[in-house]
């Protein structure tokens, strides 16, 4: 008996037949991933393939599981079920190519290190066990700090930086990892205008360089301006694809429910950016 592939877009995988392997071009493929805290599921049967060389926004309402999605994909929170692959390989084999920017609150900013020290941490994998961070690595780290506009503050202790500057230090650290995929958890949360501009410029730079960035984002309005792909998430994947295809009234409604002002603002933003709303 031959296995046939049946697709219909809901809950459990719909075919008993094995799915064709996801494309190994995709920097991040998530198959049937379920994550639960205690008994409550946070993510249910998420299937997603991130496109290569794109800026992807992960958007959805509070509690939709945006941060959980990327943390579970990186193995930082346990998955109840599901498989995650990066370029068709398990995470362990391609760690070098994935750079993660956690939320700013995840570390203690009074820790006795300088901004440059933190960025150097992004080089540790290349430095390896036991060896000290050499001059060449420090130089790369300094360049990364320069790219986020903080070269002057390299030797400041990190608690003496503003929130936005701290966020940029984290970005510089991810740059220093020289990965091909950048996974960022709310980099725009609570930052000043200068930092926001710096992050956007950086994202574009990454795209120019052929990299992919997957960014958890909370501001619907700026999605069309900053990103080319979007993943609408609300426990499940509501829609995913190029922003102009995904940002439809129906999809946004499915994701956010009846918060109309928010939706019309987002739709306006799409209109402003010259994309067509279907």
């Amino acid at each position: 008996m031959s296995d046939t592939v049946v697709h219909s877009g809901h809950a459990a995988p719909t075919s008993l037949a094995e799915r064709p392997e996801h494309s190994s071009d995709s920097p991040l493929s998530i198959h049937a991933m379920t994550v639960a805290y205690q008994r409550k599921p946070v993510l249910w049967d998420v299937d997603y393939d991130a496109p290569a060389n794109a800026l992807v926004a992960v958007v959805g309402p509070n509690g939709a599981g945006k941060s959980t999605l990327i943390k579970a994909a990186l193995g930082l929170v346990p998955r109840a079920s599901g498989l995650v692959e990066f370029w068709g390989e398990p995470y362990k084999r391609v760690r070098d190519r994935v750079a993660y920017v956690p939320q700013r609150e995840s570390v203690d900013w009074t820790f006795p290190v300088s901004a440059l020290d933190v960025v150097c941490m992004g080089r540790y994998r290349r430095v390896g066990w036991l060896r000290p961070v050499g001059r060449a690595h420090k130089k790369v780290a300094l360049e990364c700090l320069d790219r986020v506009g903080l070269a002057d503050l390299a030797h400041r202790q990190i608690s003496q930086l503003s929130g936005g500057q701290q966020q940029r230090v984290f970005l510089a650290r991810a740059l220093a990892q020289e990965g091909d995929l950048y996974v960022m958890d709310e980099p725009f949360a609570g930052v000043d205008a200068a930092t926001e501009r710096a992050i956007v410029a950086l994202l574009r730079e990454l795209r120019e360089a052929g990299k992919t960035a997957i960014v958890v984002h909370h501001d619907l309005q700026t999605v069309p301006e900053y990103f080319d792909h979007a993943l609408l998430l609300n426990m499940r994947v509501v829609a995913a694809g190029p922003v102009n295809e995904v940002f439809t009234r129906e999809n946004l409604h499915k994701t956010y429910g009846g918060k109309l002002t928010l939706l019309s603002e987002a739709a306006e933003a799409v209109a402003r950016s010259g994309l067509k709303v279907r």
Partner: peptide, 18 residues
């Protein structure tokens, strides 16, 4: 699923797939 889509703003806390 239909519930999630219709009442997305309140839904995630209520959904109990199992």
């Amino acid at each position: 699923e239909q519930y999630l889509q219709t009442y997305a703003d309140v839904a995630p806390g209520h959904v109990d797939w199992s």
